[in-house]
Amino acid sequence: MTPMIFDGHNDFLLRLLRDPGNRDTTWLTDTGKGHLDLPRMKQGGFGGGFFAIYISSSDQSFNIDDLMANPPYSVPLPPMIDAPTAQPIALAMAGYLKWMERASEGQFRICRTVAELRECQAKGVVSAIMHIEGAEPIAADLDALYLFHDMGLRSLGPVWSRPTVFGHGVPFAYPSSPDTGPGLTAAGKDLVRLCNDLGIMLDLSHLNEAGFNDVASLSHAPLVATHSNAHAVTPSARNLTDRQLDMIRDSGGMVGLNFATAFLNEDGAKADDRGFEPMLRHLDHLISRLGENHVGFGSDFDGAQVPNVLRDAAGLGAFRNALSAHGYGAALLEKLCHENWFAVLDRTWKA
């Protein structure tokens, strides 16, 4: 039986936000645009994942794609976004996720427990976890975190690649260490503690190294990076060093392989013509460092350029075939595809 893939990160809600007038078509039909829609999820065996609420920066005066196509590069960090600006957008995106559940007529479900995720898997229902990427919608007083948790929030990244009142993100830079600035603020440390208390998973993917270290010292939950790769293979600031991977392993956490080409290709170029080999190199390194129980996938679908051999969610079958041809057996494939995600969530969430 082909294992379904549970995915650590996607930006489909941002696509809906940018084109709300066509949301029915974008979600319920295969338009061939972007990476995700319900038909292509079903076709590729995309069984579910973390759906990100993300507030985009609108004041960039440069083209990120042009910079990242020609390494070396160091993309300037966008300015901070405050909670009054971010909260209405985040609520709209949470509303889109709820609408997706209703519009799917039973084919898509927002889940709050691992039991619900497994029930969806057994019934062939696409499952979703509400995730916030960059905690701008949560002000320093943290009151909004309780409300988002009541709405279904079960995963949160304190930062995207810009500063927040909670900490500092890594820039998109190659070659670069992730050690790019100061760690968590006092409010950021309070955020970590409250997420632990509520059973909200903390996502470390965009944190700089000092912030990563602060979370590791404060949190009693597994360390998780939902969509990151190996710095030893591709020395991007967005990737994780072996020291960080060791800390994640020792905490019982995990890493989701990011499909973004700039973080996969050894030369750091945003180029989609390298086949599956870069993905396999990173997976080999992650498994060798973390062990086979602590690695999964975090595609970054609809938020990044992915290899053209993959194309979109419908291409996940070809990806599984490449993993099998590379020598990954059935038991390992099942762990990578979904079991490791379910296990780490079981160690993190509270009933």
Score class of each variant (00 low, 15 high):
Gly95Ser: 10
Leu257Gly: 01
Ser74Gly: 09
Pro178Val: 01
Leu38Arg: 12
Val114Phe: 06
Leu38Ile: 06
Leu257Phe: 10
Leu77Thr: 07
Leu332His: 14
Phe263Asp: 00
Ala122Phe: 05
Leu16Cys: 12
Ser56Gln: 14
His294Ala: 15
Asn340Pro: 03
Leu240Asn: 03
Ala90Trp: 07
Gly317Asp: 13
His9Tyr: 01
His206Pro: 08
Gln244Cys: 07
His206Gln: 12
Ala330Ile: 12
Met93Asp: 01
Glu277Ser: 09
Phe148Ser: 02
Phe342Ile: 14
Cys111Met: 07
Tyr146Ala: 15
Glu119Phe: 11
Leu38Ser: 08
Gly167Met: 02
Leu323Gln: 14
Arg118Phe: 01
Val224Cys: 09
Gln60Asn: 13
Leu316Met: 15
Ser56Asn: 13
Met80His: 12
His220Gly: 13
Arg274His: 14
Thr241Arg: 04
Glu334Asn: 14
Pro137Ser: 06
Phe50Pro: 00
Met130Asn: 03
Val126Phe: 03
His282Glu: 00
Ser324Asp: 09
Lys189Met: 15
Asn196Gln: 10
Gly47Met: 09
Ile53Leu: 12
Asp11Tyr: 09
Ile53Lys: 04
Pro78Asn: 08
Gly45Val: 06
Gly157Lys: 00
Asn340Ile: 10
Trp341Phe: 11
Ala260Gly: 13
Leu97Pro: 09
Asp179Arg: 13
Pro76Ile: 05
Leu184Glu: 03
Ser155Asp: 07
Asp284Pro: 06
Ser217Cys: 12
Asp24Gln: 12
Leu240Glu: 06
Asp250Gly: 02
His285Gly: 05
Ala330Glu: 15
Ala186Met: 11
Ala140Val: 04
Arg320Ser: 06
Ala94Asp: 00
Tyr174Met: 04
Ala122Pro: 01
Pro235Ser: 04
His294Tyr: 11
Asn70Ala: 15
Ser288Val: 02
Pro175Met: 06
Ala343Glu: 13
Met254Asn: 04
Glu266Gln: 13
Ala269Asn: 01
Gly49Pro: 03
Pro175Phe: 03
Gln107Val: 00
Asn213Ala: 15
Asp272Gly: 10
Cys111His: 05
Asp7Ile: 02
His294Asp: 00
Pro84Phe: 09
Pro3Ala: 11
Glu266Thr: 15
Ser104His: 06
Leu223Asp: 04
Cys337Pro: 03
Asp300Gly: 04
Leu13Asp: 06
Asp82Pro: 03
Lys123Thr: 01
Phe50Lys: 01
Gly315Tyr: 10
Ala318Trp: 07
Glu266His: 09
